[in-house]
Amino acid sequence: MTGADALFGVFAALACGGALGVAAFRSVARMAFSLVVCLSAVAGLFFLLNAPMVGATQLIVYVGGTVVLLIFGVMLTDAGVGRRMKIGLLETISMTFIAIGLAAALGWTAVGLGRAIPGAPVLDEEGVEIVAATPDTLRPIGLKFLGLGGESGVGFLLPFEIISVHLLVVLIGAAYLARAKRRVDATPETPPEATRETASDGLGEQA
């Protein structure tokens, strides 16, 4: 039992618990909270894995950004806090079987793969594991991005730029998609068909 193991245990438990919570809770709000816990714990796992940069990104982008966005979506689309959408019993049972099968298959693979790649924590000569320390990964990652630091000499600038542009396009598109449909809002007394037509007109205009 090392400190890393202990911390891993804590974080892994939190992550798995959060994930299970996401899957199990019916309330979207609770799911969101579970997701926050899960993702934060995964960020902790990243810190344990000597990847503070990734962890920080996970926190700031995922937890601080994406999940807030999701909660925002919940707020905008959910009629009430307690409202739940039920699914059928048969579906639940079949889903349970599928989940067990999937978990078994993945677990079996994970154990097999873990055996194949033994990768033990790195200790120094005094037996103190340096896992919990925060190594300087920022500069290596940055240099790797530029294709300067690593041995391979292959940078990630092009993917980075592609992803940047992609992100920009996606965000513009998202903003456009989610913009307020004023005509629909302005005519509440119109019958549903008309409303739908108006909306589809709007879609047609987009096309």
Partner: peptide, 17 residues
């Protein structure tokens, strides 16, 4: 490694579910 992989497996399963 195994532990992380199992955590990952649990996450994935829960996500699919």
């Amino acid at each position: 490694m195994t532990g992380y992989l199992i955590v990952s497996a649990v996450l994935l399963t829960c996500g699919v579910v």
